[in-house]
Design a protein around this nucleic acid. Structure first.
Lengths: 356, 356
DNA sequence: CTGAAAGCGCTAACAG
DNA sequence: CTGTTAGCGCTTTCAG
């Protein structure tokens, strides 16, 4: 491993000069010296040691991204977009998988702080950000993706998310418009602001239509830890089976994300129910598979490209520009989700034939 | 940000002592001092600065993982497993997305070397590892996942992959056993050892059965850069449409991975062909969605949990134990893939009714 | 315009 | 058992 010293020697200059041509302002070295240094760098295949550099400067050009589940393509896509956006600012991104475990979130954040990473984006997870309060107090800039900063005063520097509740309303209205009256909600633990919001939207829209969301139609699965791979799909599958076994089964299901919806397809198939003939399904996220599934899934799309760009821009700006002590008031930007109607929804089975 | 110095002061000891209780052997400090130090650490919320630490030791406890596409859940799952395995050894993993671009692979590797990351796992990508030769020469331990080290003498320290060719044979034999004679191969650029191997296996098995794999049945799509999200699915979709429009269309399709297969479903649907009635499809990887798709996809499974564990163990061992200059001979371990028969394959349409 | 020298926070000898 | 001290590789004043 060649060091800056070797380069200096090779070029016949001092280390200070090398450092200057490598990152000092242009005007500080003669073109000729500059060329010699560059040649030496090339010849020696010199790569500056990032550890030393950041030790000195105290800064890193990398952002952290903590996602709740790499097994869900939605987060894969988010990683993709966040990385892309960060790259434009010359930042790299370190992706961590929290497996929806609060403890892991905190551990990762801790590690990052130790690695001089000063800004971390957290993907939807627990409502409370309290476990990150310490870190924030110690200088970590916390950004939230798909999660509101509600009640997390002082810890979240900025956040983006779609208007979750509105998303829920879109789904509900579409279903209600089709004639559905018994709509179920299926989800894993309803403990993230995104899920809570989606459910709230569903409930609100139903109430506005004079319908009631029954408790037994809220299917909240437990997440088995370490079950990441299949998690969502499995839950959705189990959910449909149970829901459709009820006396007055729902005629439509709104799921907290597309993974559950896809699992629901499998569940429906297991018991011989047809989508959307016997049961309508609307998902959330619009992952690539949504369009490919048979039938193509009606879902609520989150414009993650735009969202990623916003959050990255804000975080970096905040990091570089605002070094003013406090963690900011938590500027939140709300994006409007979009209903994508495909083929997994239709009027309920008994529609138009009278029903009592 | 509290430093070791502050802790020392708070505890009324020297920095050396603090350092010792934090990572020196246990026997070197009195229980009492130890307690005081720990208390100070707690009180000050001290987190050691990783940059400084690694600057001193020259080592990092983090591995790099470069995957070709985060949009493909297969790689999401691999990240998951690699991370899990690394964690057991106390390592973290930095996941990078190369988007199947050689240049990005090299750039990332370069960055990592600069960040004192000494070991990187590369997921299937270009056959040649030449672009990494420099890095390897400069001390980077390169491990390959799902990619043979063939011809990369001196650059790859170790690798794991399934026997790709065998996987291709499994798929082919299954299809041939069903009565198929015109089998197509659909894939993106056939420029990775994995794809080349899979195709070779298909061809070999067909020849053994006295069949011939026609060139026009080898559908090789171009990858549009930055198209990551939908890439695979789109290609598969286009492929089926074109393939089935030929005079003597194939009756079965073997795809280089499940994403293509899933796209193929969409393509078949586009033109009103039924799977497996009109066209049989077998994929590769066995991603979660394979089982959920309608019809469930017949595919070749890669035991990624086991593979991840092997590669991580080897890399770390190699990194910690063997500091013997050369990059090793490239110990490769081959895993046997597994044919998972589901419902996307059936005898060809004209089977048993004579066919000319 | 270029060289010398002082650390960044930490670890690892080596003294005491 | 604990304190001192010399750097790790680099950036950055500050002289020359």
């Amino acid at each position: 491993m060649a060091g800056i010293k070797d380069v200096a020697q090779e070029a016949g200059v001092s280390v200070g000069t090398v450092s200057n041509v490598l990152n000092g302002r242009k005007g500080r070295t003669s073109t000729e010296t500059r060329a010699r240094v560059l040649a030496a760098v090339e010849k020696l295949q010199y790569t500056p040691n990032a550890a030393a550099r950041q030790l000195k400067s105290g800064l890193t050009q990398t952002l952290g991204l903590v996602v709740p589940s790499v097994a869900n393509p939605f987060w894969g896509a988010v990683s993709h977009h966040v990385e892309r956006a960060a790259l434009e600012f010359g930042y790299k991104v370190l992706v961590c998988n929290a497996e929806r475990e609060v403890a892991r979130e905190a551990t990762y954040a801790e590690d990052m702080l130790g690695s001089s990473i000063r800004g971390v984006i957290f993907g939807s997870s627990p409502v409370s950000m309290d476990h990150l309060r310490d870190l924030a107090a110690r200088g970590l800039r916390v950004a939230a993706f798909d999660r509101r900063s509600r009640g997390a005063s002082g810890v979240v520097a900025c956040s983006v998310s779609i208007d979750q509740e509105l998303g829920g309303r879109f789904a509900a209205r579409h279903l209600i418009g089709l004639g559905h009256q018994r709509i179920a909600f299926v989800s894993g633990p309803i403990s993230t602001s995104s899920r809570i919001g989606r459910l709230a939207g569903l409930r609100a829209a139903m109430e506005e239509a004079g319908l009631v969301l029954e408790d037994r139609h809220i299917w909240q699965g437990a997440t088995r830890p370490g079950f990441g791979d299949t998690e969502g799909a499995q839950l959705g599958r189990a959910a449909v089976r149970e829901l459709l076994a009820q006396r007055d089964p729902p005629t439509a299901i709104f799921t907290a994300n597309d993974m559950y919806a896809l699992g629901a397809y499998a569940g429906a198939r297991d018991i011989g129910a047809r989508v959307p003939g016997d049961i309508s399904i609307v998902g959330f996220d619009d992952i690539v598979f949504a369009e490919i599934m048979q039938p193509p899934l009606t879902t609520i799309r989150q414009p993650i490209g735009r969202m990623s760009e916003i959050i990255v821009r804000r975080l970096i700006h905040d990091l570089e520009d605002g070094r003013r002590g406090d963690a900011g008031g938590g500027a939140h930007v709300d994006i409007t989700p979009e209903l994508v109607v495909r083929a997994s929804t239709a009027p309920p089975p008994d529609h138009g034939r009278g029903n009592s």
